[in-house]
Nucleic acid binder design. Structure first.
Lengths: 183, 183
DNA sequence: AGCCAGATACCAACCACGCGGTATGTTTCC
DNA sequence: GGAAACATACCGCGTGGTTGGTATCTGGCT
């Protein structure tokens, strides 16, 4: 039965991805070693390699997971938005700013660290962006909206760089960006 | 005299920094190993360690050099700008977009790769930003200008991620951002 | 001017260590 | 019982860093 089972592979797998993400944020991409991730997840190295055949698979799995979470988050935000024009861009804004008041524990933080450094990961990221941008081209294809999205990237970078220490008032900046998507 | 092959330590030092930068761009930050940098510069590993006592010193030296070049570039652009309001922000814009038509060989490309990945480098970068932002607060302290600067960061990230392949028309985007700094 | 001592700029070989990865057990689930 | 889910121990290799030596430059003394 499922009441007191001791081994839960999918739980371990999740914890591995989460720990990899956390390590990428606080110790940089260099700190995301197989050993460190395994230790943080309370598993031995061999145990890790049972779930991910190679380190690259681990990192790509983490990125894929993050992108997937980001997808769902954005889709949900779009659905709630009554106004179609710029809905993707607004969802994009909130994907970075929501939950940003304390610390920086959104998917983005880990993405930043991982993606920019390794070239082959950049392509995954660029591909995601292209796909998303193409999908929303009839609601979000506007010069000003593009500027807003770029500013979001910049803001995310700024927050990541300052490690959560709020630069200027983040809530105010968010309001301003949201406002720019209407007009 | 200076016709024969003299020993020019500062030339070698420069070449080491340049090669480190180039490697960071094309192979990612993981590709910037002491051996690789030394080889690319035509020097042995021992020779490199004569100029930089440790790898961290090498990377920090590279970053410091890049920031210094960026400083001069921006200062020069500000001086040419007749209108004081937003002059720093415009210089900031051009520091990314000028020379971007072909490839991506500006200081920024290497900065991106190096800075985001390692936490202690992020602090250097954040410090530079804070200092610069504080220095120009009476000409560039404006909500819209802040948005523009963030968009610049985002654009730079985008260009870096796509490895030079022009996303939307870069020249047009630059014009738009410059336009937003006026008004 | 010429020479010499010492500092500078490099090279070549080496080392300890941590990395990603593997092979082989041992326990737990169905 | 047999497969899945781990643990343990080990390996080759590349890494950052060191050591000791060798050219090469520089400045001062005679």
């Amino acid at each position: 039965m499922s009441n007191a089972r001791r081994k839960q592979p999918e739980v371990v797998r999740r914890r591995l991805l989460d720990c990899a993400e956390a390590l990428a944020v606080e110790r940089g991409l260099a700190g995301i070693t197989v050993q460190a991730v395994a230790d943080a997840a309370g598993v031995t190295k061999g145990g890790l390699f049972h779930h991910f055949p190679t380190k690259q698979a681990l990192v790509e799995g983490m990125v894929a997971d993050l992108l997937h979470r980001l997808d769902r988050e954005i889709d949900a935000a779009i659905e709630k938005d009554p106004e179609p024009r710029g809905s993707f861009t607004r969802a994009y804004v909130d994907s970075v700013f929501v939950g940003r008041e304390f610390g920086f524990d959104t998917p983005w933080a880990a993405l930043s660290v991982a993606m920019v450094a390794e070239p082959h990961l950049r392509r995954l990221w660029a591909g995601w962006l292209d796909e998303r941008q193409h999908r929303h081209q009839d609601t979000d294809d506007d010069p000003m909206l593009e500027v807003v999205r770029l500013a979001v990237d910049g803001a995310w970078l700024s927050v990541t760089i300052r490690e959560g220490e709020a630069a200027s008032d983040i809530a105010e900046l968010r309001q301003r960006l949201i406002g720019l998507t209407r007009r």
